[in-house]
């Protein structure tokens, strides 16, 4: 099944919002609304480790394998959606 970027970005925004509610990223910035354009590092102030931990959730949700190297190309939810779709099509 082919995934659409818009649909995946929307789902990822929801997954990230749920993830942030667990309290791992506890900054005022982390409580703002998440959109496909949200930058996880500069907007939400997530550090590199927190982004990596979130990736584990994403991998399991979509049952895809995301290489650690891909992380350097991911800043926004849209970036992440692109990586998920690429991994899903492999």
């Amino acid at each position: 099944m082919k995934l659409s970027t818009k649909k995946v970005a929307g789902e990822l925004a929801t997954i990230l919002a749920e993830y942030l509610k667990k309290g791992w990223v506890d900054t005022p910035a982390s409580k703002q609304a998440i959109t496909p354009e949200t930058n996880m590092v500069s907007n939400l102030q997530m550090d590199s480790f927190q982004v990596m931990e979130f990736m584990l959730e994403v991998e399991d949700h979509y049952d895809v394998a995301i290489d650690l190297e891909s992380l350097s190309n991911i800043q926004t939810i849209l970036d992440l959606a692109g990586v998920v779709i690429a991994a899903h099509s492999e």
């Binding site: 990596m52 584990l56 991998e59 399991d60 049952d63 895809v64 290489d67 650690l68 190297e69």
Partner: peptide, 20 residues
């Protein structure tokens, strides 16, 4: 290629081995 699995989580490791 590096894939991480959840710390000490056997299910997480097994899922990633299966995907390989």
């Amino acid at each position: 290629d590096i894939f991480r699995f959840k710390h000490n989580d056997l299910q997480s490791l097994e899922r990633r081995l299966t995907r390989l």
